[in-house]
Nucleic acid binder design. Structure first.
Length: 400
DNA sequence: AAAGGCTCCAACCGCGCATGA
DNA sequence: CTCATGCGCGGTTGGAGCCTT
């Protein structure tokens, strides 16, 4: 085993950094980039090991770091991403602009984990501790498949993230609003330099993971459905055969078609395609996707299908009655499927009331899952896609 | 006011992976 | 193929500050 760098030399300083040390490190990196971390301390005149310098830079000094309290949306993102990715903090951090993996990890351990625990939800599995919510063989099977595919997608996500890091690719002026947030997580240049934030390619996002899960759930029962973590775009006819409430089938089918269209880029563009210089093509696909989405929005009213899809906070802010009464609000029996969206016990919407009111019943668990659903609403396209994924995964598939 | 407990988070440690000689 | 090296990741720790008794 390789010795820890910091243990090789005695006499190197440890512990908290002083402002003088910070200044030295900052000044050196701004002028020269970090280059080899191992060689940096000597060049910068620091009595620290390279590893310590790297940590200080990446977790504290980097200019593109946002510090301070996590907002509601960030909290929800962390929970959702943790449910999908587990303790892969670096992967989670790539989806939270300007937050470091260390900061997210700390926040999870000190706040969110405890909060979920108090809700009666296992912070590791993200399932209710008593598992009453997921009882029943059908649902368990669907959940197992979802979990299985999440693992595959997770692995793929990680590999693609690595590829992207290595490719150092930069997409100049990424098209805005295609996937919700053009100013997504920056990549810190491996070159060190001044580490100006660069745009992360939008095609490699957690949405792709959702898309992967969509595919997996639509392919439940197919022997080939779990073969490859890179499986994409093989939408089966099953996707359109899922029983939907008659009159609304057209809308829902169209919505799924949109998801498929979205997948054409999000899921269908692999990291290797990026590496083959297909980035512009990907952007074109995204633009096309955005155009199709706009068309759909204007012609059929996307928000009729997925109420408040573009305003994820409004999802919970509104009353169940309003959702029921919203035009098309009963599309695919959404309100029936999800149950009432009671806000009063929702810990994510009601601030700190979790400590006051939680008694471990199903209501809170449902709200928790609704919160997870809601989270993806941070991305207007992702919300709708995920909503359908989740609805099918948890409510429809078990009935098949 | 003081002591003890608790919370939070920056920093450290150990491990595994990638890469190059 | 093997080994040394560098780096990144996730888990853990230490201590400062806050809270409670």
């Amino acid at each position: 085993m390789v010795k820890s760098q910091c243990r090789e030399k005695v006499g190197l300083k440890k512990g908290p950094w002083t402002p003088e040390e910070d200044q030295k490190l900052l000044a050196y990196i701004e002028e020269h980039g970090h280059g080899s971390w191992r060689a940096l301390p000597a060049k910068a005149g620091l009595q620290r090991c390279g590893k310590s310098c790297r940590l200080r830079w990446t977790n504290y000094l980097r200019p593109d770091i946002k510090r301070g309290k996590f907002n509601l949306q960030e909290e929800q993102s962390i929970i959702q991403l943790h449910a999908l990715l587990g303790n892969r903090w670096s992967a989670i951090a790539t989806h939270l602009p300007k937050r470091t993996d260390n900061e997210i990890k700390n926040y999870w351990n000190t706040h969110l984990k405890k909060r979920l625990d108090k809700m009666g939800i296992d912070p590791v599995t993200h399932k209710p501790k008593a598992d009453s919510f997921g009882s029943g063989s059908g649902h368990s099977k669907g959940a197992a498949n979802l979990s299985h595919m999440a693992q595959w997608e997770s692995a793929r996500l990680e590999a693609e993230a690595r590829l992207v890091r290595e490719s150092k690719l930069i997409v100049p002026n990424p098209p805005k609003n295609l996937l919700g947030s053009a100013a997504s997580a920056p990549l810190v240049s491996n070159e060190g330099s001044t580490a100006a934030p660069t745009a992360r390619p939008q095609c490699l996002d957690v949405l792709k993971a959702w898309q992967g899960v969509v595919f997996s759930m639509f392919s439940v029962g197919r022997s080939d459905s779990l073969e490859s973590p890179t499986s994409t775009l093989n939408f089966s006819e099953n996707a359109l055969a899922i029983p939907l409430n008659g009159a609304h089938k057209q809308y829902s089918t169209t919505r799924i078609a949109f998801a498929t269209n979205n997948a054409a880029c999000i899921g269908g563009t692999t990291a290797s395609e990026f590496d083959r210089g297909n980035r512009l093509g990907c952007i074109e696909k995204l633009e096309e996707t955005a155009r199709v989405k706009r068309d759909l929005d204007s012609s059929m009213g996307i928000h009729d299908i997925i109420p408040y899809a573009s305003d994820h906070n409004a999802w919970f802010a509104d009353s169940p009655a309003n959702i029921e009464n919203a035009p098309g609000g009963d599309i695919i029996g959404l309100s029936e499927i999800l149950g009432s969206n009671s806000q009063e016990h929702n810990p994510f919407c009601s601030g700190e009331n979790i400590n006051e009111s939680y008694d471990g019943n199903l209501e809170e668990n449902r709200d928790y899952w609704n919160s997870l659903l809601n989270l993806v609403g941070a991305s207007p396209t992702g919300s709708a896609v995920f909503l359908i994924i989740y609805t099918i995964a948890t409510r429809i598939v078990p009935l098949l």
